[in-house]
Design a protein around this nucleic acid. Structure first.
Lengths: 201, 201
DNA sequence: CATGCTGGGTAAGGATTCCTAACCTGATCT
DNA sequence: AGATCAGGTTAGGAATCCTTACCCAGCATG
């Protein structure tokens, strides 16, 4: 909430330490003592600033999400048309995963299995992002750019699923993510579907 | 491998116990002692039959997958046309999640974050299933039913992602999954995309 | 100046959890 | 009768997450 840089040094060191560790290990394999050692503080300090190991992860993810939300808002400025906005949103989404591997891993792999994640403050930030996507879809339906015979919420889930799964496999197997290339293909798929015919330009 | 029912009673009780526990708790919150108690055996017996807690989960998932693979193979028999097969496959996929909530939870939430999962025997079974999907897509491209300007492997990832994400949200928030309804919507999305126009029948 | 208080940090320990090594026991084979 | 073996148990240990109580520098206040 308070986004002022009033954070004590210990807290910053801890969050940074986890960030670094996540580059090479998965969250489940990282221990609190490891984080503490890596941060140069004692284990107990972690529990001063965070409710627990998971809360630390959530707060780290929140930081990423706040940055990303701002970025997306900026990226979409000045773009006309729902489909054009959607294309840009997809690009931004893929691009952030391509840039911040750790962010991708947390969001796509680690937090998903924690049931308390879905009631966390962090998840609300994700909702805020998906809300943007929903609004674009609704705008597109109003404009006649997007078909109106499938519920927007459903479309959102399907679109997000395809974006994330395409990135997920690349994250898991440590393959390169090319935002431009993937965006192009994803938009072709999402906009026109897989049926032969409509794509004959 | 050996699909003979030659399994000792203890092993069965342990697997059953986990299955039951997974109905109400997530894997991370289930302890080995809890499993043992619930199964009516000692903790050490778990390690007689399984390499560890995770291996137990993987093997449980493998059982589900073996059943499902057989089911899918059956479901697809006698269907002509790649798109018709794909529709049926999507239905089967959604249907199994609708039927076996525990299976869905394991596959969509629990195992994904374990990095050793992706090198496990269990994951090979998943590959076997996704291979079927790939073959359908390739058949469709050959037939001219499916567009040929997006790589089949990419299409598979995108399609699977949309299926799974649609189900995932329902699994997470304990909402009902209606195979018929979701299949209809998903096929509309996957076949024709979101653009307005092509859907004017 | 003493006093108290507050924010940042530490020391020490405890319950739980996952897992292992060694042992037991009844059945089957020879 | 002795050996072997599958199915199971007893007992324990290292590691992990987390809590409680404590330390101490700075600094505002009377």
């Amino acid at each position: 909430m308070a986004e002022a840089k009033a954070w004590p040094p210990g807290r910053i060191k801890i969050a940074d330490a986890l960030r670094v560790l996540l580059e090479t290990k998965d969250f489940g394999a990282i221990t609190t003592s490891e984080i503490a050692k890596s941060a140069g503080v004692t284990e107990a300090l972690i529990y001063k600033y965070f409710k627990g190991k998971r809360d630390l992860l959530y707060q780290l993810l929140s930081e990423y999400l706040e940055h990303y939300d701002v970025q997306v808002e900026r990226d979409l400025k000045g773009i006309k048309g729902a489909l054009n906005k959607l294309r840009k949103l997809i690009w931004s989404h893929i691009n952030v995963y391509a840039t911040d591997r750790v962010f991708a891993k947390i969001l796509l792999l680690d937090v998903r299995s924690f049931s308390d994640y879905y009631t966390s403050e962090t998840y609300k930030l994700v909702r805020k992002y998906t809300e943007i996507l929903l609004e674009i879809i609704q705008e597109g339906i109003k404009n006649q750019e997007i078909r109106d015979d499938i519920p927007p919420v459903f479309l959102r889930q399907a679109i997000l699923g395809s974006i994330e799964n395409v990135c997920l496999t690349r994250v898991v197997f440590d393959q390169k993510i090319s935002p431009d290339d993937l965006t192009e293909k994803l938009c072709e798929f999402v906009f026109k579907g897989i049926e032969h015919g409509a794509s004959k330009n």
